[in-house]
Design a protein around this nucleic acid. Structure first.
Lengths: 192, 192
DNA sequence: TAAGTTTTATACCTATCGGTACGTTACCTC
DNA sequence: GAGGTAACGTACCGATAGGTATAAAACTTA
């Protein structure tokens, strides 16, 4: 019964190309032409496979979280609270100032897409951020080795804020080395 | 010799309207129609008075720094290093989560304008950020009341990073009260 | 009042935006 | 092979982007 012409491209590879472009140029700075060129497909194929620009972005964001952004979930598996925090800060530096990837964080970028057509995208990014911080807070509630001056919710919010700052710094052109120093300063301030 | 039809609008007031729009919707999310509508003038008047969109943005950014963003320069006049830092963090919270202004920071937003037409804007924003951090570093070098574990350059970079994070959090919708708590947590981590 | 000057408003320009209609091509099943 | 099905490439859509030509309007100076 089924059949039809087979797809001439790999959907996951195409998503990775789209991720590259959205990450580097932002949602509003990326045109469909940019996307189809990078993905090696044309517009009807894009729409058939991924939906419109907003839906494609949602799929790209999910792939980002599962790939480059997976360190945020992985860090929660560390055995001590300190290690969780260290992995989050160092992971943010490595992600946002990587050598082979655009500088900055796709999710932080997307919060700043505030044009009329980017509403859904921004809401998606905000939802992801909220979920991530809630998971961190729950993890920190289990930790027993963190300075007692913090409530878990406050520490989670602060770590999240510092990660955001690292992403901005990376997007503004700071080098990985400089960011690593900033991250280490932050860890000392937080944990010592 | 001179003369000519007098301008029917106040240039500074028009710039303030443009600032509102750019701040709320971002450089790439703001169209010329948005601008002319908010400013109450039409396109030829805008071009004659302020140049093209990029030049207008540069003027708006300067006005932002002289107005809402002036707290960054004012803070450097505080008498102690601790006060400098406190004013910077609290000022960032008040600026980016103000009741009567858009949430977020115009300068941080603009770093995330990464489309092909926003190159100049992004460079302008980055230059402003660099200058601000250098001024902070110089001020911190004069301070004698800050924890000795920091080098001034590292502390300036860390404060700047935390301010950026606050701006992102505000842009993502955090309330002023929550941000104030985050800022206070950060100050304790930095200064205690 | 006439000349000169600058701003105003309208109407328009080209390029590009996101999105789609449609006919062709390539595959699977029978 | 024939028929059905789905992806392909091209060519196009209306809307809007940033930017401008042009001429009427409002002022100053002489």
């Amino acid at each position: 019964m089924p059949g039809g012409r087979p797809r001439s491209f790999d959907a996951d590879a195409a998503l990775d190309r789209a991720l590259e472009v959205f990450w580097r140029h932002g949602y509003e700075g990326t045109s469909l032409t940019d996307l189809t060129t990078a993905m090696g497909i044309n517009k009807p194929s894009l729409y058939a496979a991924f939906g419109n620009k907003e839906e494609l972005f949602a799929k790209v964001l999910a792939r980002y979280l599962d790939g480059p952004g997976a360190y945020t979930a992985d860090a929660l598996d560390a055995s001590t609270g300190r290690e969780v925090v260290e992995q989050l800060i160092h992971g943010a530096v490595d992600l946002t100032a990587g050598q082979n990837t655009p500088h900055g964080c796709l999710c932080v970028n997307s919060v700043h897409a505030r044009g009329p057509d980017a509403h859904t995208v921004r809401q998606d990014a905000i939802a992801v951020r909220k979920a991530g911080e809630a998971a961190l807070r729950r993890r920190l509630e289990q930790a027993t080795d963190l300075p007692s001056r913090y409530e878990p919710a406050a520490l989670a919010a602060l770590i999240h804020t510092i990660s955001d700052g690292i992403a901005v710094q990376a997007a503004a052109g700071r080098s990985h080395d400089e960011l690593r120093q900033i991250g280490d300063s932050a860890l000392r301030a937080l944990l010592d």
